[in-house]
Design a protein around this nucleic acid. Structure first.
Lengths: 141, 141
DNA sequence: ATTGGATCAAGAACTATTCTAATTTAAATT
DNA sequence: AATTTAAATTAGAATAGTTCTTGATCCAAT
């Protein structure tokens, strides 16, 4: 144990988040996701993370991403059957998938909107998670 | 061409829907989906369709499902990275995934709701498709 | 009847992901 | 500081859903 408390490392990432020990690999992957908010796939993370961790394996990237997801540090986002993407934005939001460029944009809800109020849910339903995906194009104007 | 128009077959399925020729295999798969609205996977369709088409192959089931989807006759529904499911309900609707039983329920929107109005979309966005997925439980009682 | 294009069947191939087993690292304890 | 223990990492094999390939079959139009 260091004597400095949570923010004990040079890169500003705590030793532990939500009960998950932040190893070097997890730190770097988390930092990368925070940096470029491009919703990369595991493989894209793998390729880019090699700059800081040349010996990392793809399995470790998957392991780390899964650990981060399960401890609610990042979110996993799926579009159809495409490779999973990973997102550091924990606010409730949807995803707009621009078909022309393949890029993904976070979409906020307008203030005061509670999605479940708008749906005809079966009675006694407890919703744990909502996912909203939009597909379309940014029309050139 | 028969002389009876669209509904020319005993089973009530037209020879062609949305420009897709309805072969025997496509008919049977479509009929099956219409019958049990249980959002089956391709493999579930494969197993059940063997009763009426004992020689059908899994590849054909995939081909038929893809053709039906592309001609907007059925919808493909994905939950995370689980196997794709198929749904004959073309009305705009979401899906509630009951974690306890694994079953899927269609969820209608309350009348007068236009989802895109509630979202903070980038300007000049043309939405082609919206997908809404809920995960949770039907609480006992 | 013949031709040509679409459809189907069977199995191989592909790809994203997970698993396995061995090694390394880090933390806790002596 | 050395030892023990558990967790994390690595590399590659395995898995599962889906797609691709090739050859056979069907069907509609000539």
């Amino acid at each position: 144990m260091t004597s400095q408390g949570l923010l004990s490392q040079a890169n500003g990432i705590p030793e532990e988040i939500n009960g998950l020990r932040m190893t070097r690999q997890r730190q770097e992957i988390y930092k990368l996701l925070m940096g470029e908010r491009s919703h990369p796939t595991a493989n894209e993370v793998f390729m880019r993370i090699k700059e800081s961790l040349p010996n990392i394996s793809l399995a470790t990237v998957y392991n780390c991403l899964e650990a981060l997801v399960q401890h609610h540090i990042i979110r996993q986002v799926n579009f159809d059957r495409e490779p999973s993407r990973y997102c550091p934005n924990l606010d409730e939001h949807g995803h707009f998938h621009d078909e022309a460029t393949g890029t993904i944009h976070d979409v906020k809800f307008k203030p005061g909107i509670n999605l479940t109020d708008l749906l005809d849910l079966p009675p006694h339903t407890v919703i744990k998670d909502i996912e909203i995906t939009l597909r379309g194009q940014l029309s050139a104007s």
